[in-house]
Design a protein around this nucleic acid. Structure first.
Lengths: 208, 208, 208, 208
DNA sequence: TATGAATGAGAGTTCATTCAT
DNA sequence: GATGAATGAACTCTCATTCAT
């Protein structure tokens, strides 16, 4: 394979990823069921046939979008966790990312779209549950570390606390995404921090 | 007019409600976007044009389903709360209902479908937020009563605790609905009870 | 048959005629093909079933409209011809009526709708040709009288001249109805009078 | 691109035109309002979706038919005028074409369909008025030439005479198209020639 | 590698009509 | 005499997909 070909391949792969990123926005805005090839076409300037060439069927494209979005989310959080060492602060980073308090709520919307698709598609379900577990494990590790460091105080299993914590995050993202006037982003952040603090047994001294 | 006419009207209204109930099942199973007139037709034996005669457009039918399901949910919980007086027990009733620990998870699925639709339709959003507030208020009243009776101990505003509690319920329903093998219904119930207890400051003496 | 019944019948017949008149307006505005029961319903407040009770099928209703409109037109012209005695003046009355220079162009539009329907429906064609002949005869009589009185001068058969005259009227109504900015109603009237004058050999002395 | 591609494009364009020509017949026979996609499908063997791919919506197809027919008409007359030089003869060519004395009356029917559509659609109206003016101008030029050559004798403006002449043609086409037994094609031709002669002041010497 | 042409399947909607009252 | 409920037929349109280039 010549350099030219390889460069072409790389360029093509990059273009495919660009299209994928644009498709994410479209799916986040319109919803997966309502996303047609034409919508992605309009958002990217790439023809319908080309999309099919890249992804296969429409369903394959949507699944590619879910996977891409999930990975992007995880990557983004890992990047933001990079310099943060305190268990409580790490928890807050994750929470604020997922509730969309930082960044747009496209991530959360795609998360919901993935859930929904997973309800009916076994393959997607497996992937979503896997991602779900990745979050649980990540959070559980933070909690275990917090307990070990004496920042948190709880005798519950870290994995259980992680499940409770992630449930809280997901559940609080809803009214924010819906634009509930009674639950603004800032309020949601406070409610979330307060509840997380109670769940992990945040010791008063460490409270903000 | 005559009794016959009135009965005819009543019978018609009942038939419409029967269709609506069946449509709820269909939407819960297939998802709102994927629910076609023909799907409801297959589930009810009623012709497509009759569905349109009853509901108007397909969208109107879906919205009718959302409304019907939300009201049914609320009615069911109120019925189940009928003989329950203890604040903690009342809270558990609500939680167990919403996570589908009792009854099918059709209710929760429809709840998710409503959210999703609400993200894009302002009218539905207003209704969903209204329903959301109804739950908040119901839970807040229980919490306030629990605090007054000394069963709960928290200095947070009951409405805020209610928001945290409902978020937990919503968030924990997700893995259950997805059939996460690591979070069965029973486990979710325990996790939920434990977390709710921490949030409302359930006094040890009252713990089950 | 009691008086009450007869009055009821008369009242019913009048109502039917009112509906028919309203239906004429609807057909003139929307065109026969595009006129639905619903459109007439909206214009009259009468329910669809009642329209069917009055007229039978939709097609029957349209044919009733054509017949009603044709008769109304003829009646209106005869009324306007009542006090007019001069052949040239009588001709002008007819011309001005048909081109819609006087009154709305609903009459002309319905005339066109009748033509079109007649192209495909033999029964309507027979009626339209009959009406057409009525106009020819009426005009031919006027021309014969004009020639007899020495107001017109032509050696052509009056019936032939009548056919030419009516053709002119019909043909000039078109651009007026279309709102051709180059052929206003007044201009059309002048063109028509001029051309009719030439066709019937209007003697200069009688020219306006 | 390549010859093959270009041929493909040309072939496609030709096919579209074939379909258009067939659609003209269908519209002429059934009327525009009554022309369904399936009617054109039956007449061409081309699938419904292909028609939509070619023309867009059903309305767009009808408008394409109108435009195509109008242009065809004009082209045909220009072709027939090719070798004819005498003003009177040229006038007769136009008249005989428009009344369908030569060729089928599909052209005239489509002309009527265009009028009708133009009554309700502003875009079509503009096009129809434009075509109308083209005919007016063509006829006016002939009349002016005839006057200049001394074949015609009239002091009216050529454009006005053209309007009268075209009105006559349109108006006489009606009974012919309707199959009025009292006005056969030949008679209509005579009536038309006679009336046109009077309108343009055809000098006896030049009469046929 | 990338894309336009063509097409079939399926959906929502309109509308006249029938039936019962 | 008049009308609402219910329903089947027909139509337009959208959209994913296949084929050829």
């Amino acid at each position: 394979m010549s350099d030219v070909t390889r460069n072409g391949g790389r360029r093509a792969a990059r273009k495919r990823d660009d299209v994928l990123a644009a498709a994410c926005s479209v799916v986040a805005e319109r919803g997966a069921d309502a996303t047609r090839f034409t919508d992605v076409t309009a958002a990217t300037g790439v023809g319908v046939s080309t999309l099919q060439y890249y992804f296969g069927s429409r369903e394959d494209m949507l699944i590619a979008v879910f996977r891409f979005a999930a990975q992007s989310d995880f990557d983004a959080v890992e990047a933001r966790l990079g310099g943060v060492t305190g268990p409580w602060e790490r928890l807050v980073v994750i929470a604020s990312h997922l509730t969309g308090a930082v960044g747009s709520d496209a991530g959360w919307r795609l998360w919901v779209e993935s859930w929904r698709w997973a309800l009916r598609d076994p393959d997607v379900r497996a992937e979503v549950l896997g991602d779900y577990t990745r979050w649980h494990v990540l959070i559980a590790e933070i909690i275990a570390a917090g307990v070990a460091q004496g920042v948190f105080q709880t005798d519950a299993a870290p994995m259980d606390v992680a499940r409770q914590a992630l449930a809280l995050v997901d559940g609080l993202a809803l009214p924010v995404a819906l634009g509930d006037p009674q639950v603004t982003g800032a309020m949601a952040g406070d409610l979330l921090a307060d509840a997380l603090g109670r769940l992990v047994g945040l010791r008063p001294a460490a409270a903000p």
